[in-house]
């Protein structure tokens, strides 16, 4: 039984890291706060499905733009606009 428990724990531990985010250029909460209200900044909530529906935290004024539909919504924004994407 111990072997099975260990094996199972190992499988789950191996699978878990894929769920964590990789290295991405980020911006701090304070940086975002200081830029809120700027005309050129658009906050995009790229979460979809349960990632979005289960979360209690949704930034006011953020536009929903699911990551899977990037091609669809990216055309709506100008190149000089500052797009802030958040997913968690």
């Amino acid at each position: 039984m111990k072997k099975i428990v260990l094996l199972l724990s190992l499988v789950l531990l191996i699978a878990a890291p894929s769920a964590f985010a990789g290295d991405m250029p980020t911006m701090s909460k304070d940086e975002l706060k200081s830029q809120l209200g700027s005309d050129k900044m658009v906050i995009l909530d790229v979460r979809s499905g349960r990632d979005w529906s289960s979360s209690e935290f949704k930034i006011q004024g953020a536009v929903r733009a699911p990551g899977s539909e990037l091609a669809k919504w990216s055309a709506n924004y100008k190149k000089d606009q500052h797009l802030v994407l958040y997913c968690a």
């Binding site: 199972l8 699978a15 878990a16 769920a19 964590f20 349960r50 990632d51 289960s54």
Partner: peptide
């Protein structure tokens, strides 16, 4: 499990990854 992961992250520990909690609970 995904819902629980978000709840744990947002209500109890901000620094704990939500999916990390979901996998831990599953295990």
């Amino acid at each position: 499990l995904v819902t629980s992961g978000y709840t744990f992250n947002e209500v109890f520990l901000y620094w704990f990854p939500n999916f990390g909690f979901s996998f831990l609970l599953l295990a």
